[in-house]
Amino acid sequence: MDYIELIGFTAAFLTTAAFLPQVYKTWKTKDVTALSLPMLLLFFIGIVGWLVYGFLKNSPSMIFANSITVVSSFFLVYFKIKYTKK
Rank of each mutant, 00 (worst) to 15 (best):
I4S: 11
G54Y: 05
K28L: 07
M1G: 12
L41K: 11
L37N: 04
F55V: 06
P21S: 13
P21Q: 10
L56Y: 14
P21W: 10
L35M: 14
D31R: 05
S59H: 02
D31V: 03
K86Y: 04
N66I: 03
Q22P: 02
Y78K: 13
G46T: 15
K25D: 00
K82Y: 05
S61H: 09
L51G: 03
G49R: 05
Q22G: 08
S61V: 07
V32M: 00
W27R: 08
T16P: 09
L14K: 09
V77Q: 00
F43W: 02
A18H: 12
I63G: 10
F43S: 00
L20G: 07
G46W: 01
F9A: 06
T15A: 14
L51N: 06
L35K: 08
L20N: 07
V32C: 01
F75M: 15
G54T: 03
V23I: 11
F75Y: 15
A34R: 10
V70T: 13
K80Y: 04
K28Q: 12
S72E: 06
F19I: 15
F43H: 02
I7Y: 15
G8V: 15
Y83N: 00
I68F: 15
S67D: 06
P60K: 02
I4W: 13
T16V: 12
G54A: 04
D2T: 14
Y24N: 07
K80S: 01
Y78I: 13
L35N: 08
T16E: 07
K25F: 03
W50A: 03
F79L: 07
K57V: 06
T16S: 11
F75G: 07
Q22A: 11
T15V: 14
K86I: 11
I63S: 05
D2E: 14
V71M: 06
L41W: 08
F44Q: 01
W50D: 03
I4L: 15
L14H: 09
T15K: 10
K28N: 05
T69L: 08
L14M: 13
K82G: 06
P60Q: 05
K80L: 00
T33M: 00
L37Y: 01
V48D: 02
F55A: 02
V32L: 00
K25Q: 04
Y24T: 09
V77K: 02
V48I: 15
S59P: 00
L42E: 00
A17T: 06
F13A: 12
I63Q: 10
L42C: 14
F79I: 05
T29R: 01
I7E: 09
F43G: 01
F74Y: 12
K28M: 11
V71G: 06
A17F: 13
I81R: 12
M1D: 11
N66H: 10
S59L: 04
F55M: 11
G54K: 05
N66P: 11
F19T: 14
W50N: 03
T84E: 08
F75N: 11
W50V: 05
I81Q: 09
Y78H: 14
T16D: 03
I4K: 15
D2P: 11
K25V: 01
F74W: 09
